[in-house]
Computed example of a mutant assay.
Amino acid sequence: MGLTGKLVAAIEFRAGGDVFHELFTHKPHHVSTTTPEKIQSCDLHEGEFGKVGSVLFWRYTHEGKEKTAKQLIQAIDEEKKSIEFKMLEGDLMKLYKDFLITLHIDTKDGIDLVTWTLEYETLHDDVEHPISLLSFFIDMTKDIENHHLQKA
Rank of each mutant, 00 (worst) to 15 (best):
27 K>H: 13
49 F>Y: 14
29 H>A: 10
65 K>N: 12
113 L>C: 07
90 G>D: 09
96 Y>K: 04
137 F>M: 14
87 M>K: 08
78 E>Q: 05
31 V>C: 07
49 F>M: 11
61 T>E: 06
105 I>S: 02
149 L>N: 08
79 E>W: 06
35 T>N: 13
145 E>L: 02
22 E>S: 09
108 K>E: 12
45 H>I: 09
54 S>P: 10
129 H>L: 11
28 P>E: 11
152 A>P: 08
95 L>E: 14
133 L>E: 11
68 T>S: 14
118 L>V: 09
35 T>F: 12
119 E>H: 04
62 H>D: 03
38 K>G: 00
79 E>L: 09
10 A>N: 06
102 T>E: 13
20 F>W: 01
45 H>P: 04
141 T>A: 04
29 H>C: 13
67 K>F: 00
52 V>A: 12
101 I>W: 08
117 T>P: 04
24 F>S: 06
74 Q>C: 04
48 E>T: 05
98 D>I: 11
106 D>L: 14
127 V>K: 01
70 K>A: 02
104 H>Y: 12
96 Y>D: 01
74 Q>P: 03
24 F>W: 14
109 D>L: 03
65 K>D: 05
116 W>F: 06
140 M>V: 03
125 D>Y: 13
7 L>A: 01
139 D>G: 12
120 Y>F: 04
102 T>N: 08
151 K>N: 08
117 T>G: 03
66 E>A: 09
16 G>H: 05
129 H>W: 06
6 K>Q: 13
104 H>E: 14
51 K>A: 11
148 H>V: 06
84 E>G: 13
118 L>D: 04
12 E>H: 11
140 M>H: 05
85 F>L: 15
135 S>F: 13
79 E>T: 12
142 K>L: 15
5 G>K: 02
100 L>M: 09
11 I>E: 12
81 K>S: 01
72 L>A: 00
46 E>V: 10
143 D>S: 01
15 A>V: 04
93 M>G: 04
119 E>L: 02
3 L>Q: 15
37 E>Y: 00
80 K>S: 14
31 V>I: 13
38 K>P: 00
74 Q>H: 09
96 Y>R: 02
134 L>H: 00
91 D>N: 05
81 K>E: 01
92 L>N: 03
28 P>V: 15
37 E>V: 01
9 A>K: 07
65 K>T: 09
31 V>H: 00
111 I>N: 10
75 A>K: 15
56 L>H: 13
4 T>L: 05
61 T>M: 03
81 K>D: 02
149 L>A: 02
127 V>C: 00
79 E>S: 07
95 L>V: 07
132 S>D: 08
124 H>T: 13
122 T>F: 00
135 S>C: 11
48 E>F: 12
148 H>C: 08
122 T>L: 00
37 E>L: 02
1 M>Y: 14
97 K>Q: 11
99 F>S: 02
18 D>R: 05
44 L>I: 07
131 I>Y: 03
75 A>C: 09
138 I>G: 06
31 V>G: 03
45 H>A: 12
79 E>I: 07
34 T>R: 11
58 W>I: 07
4 T>H: 08
71 Q>F: 06
3 L>H: 12
132 S>T: 11
82 S>P: 14
21 H>A: 13
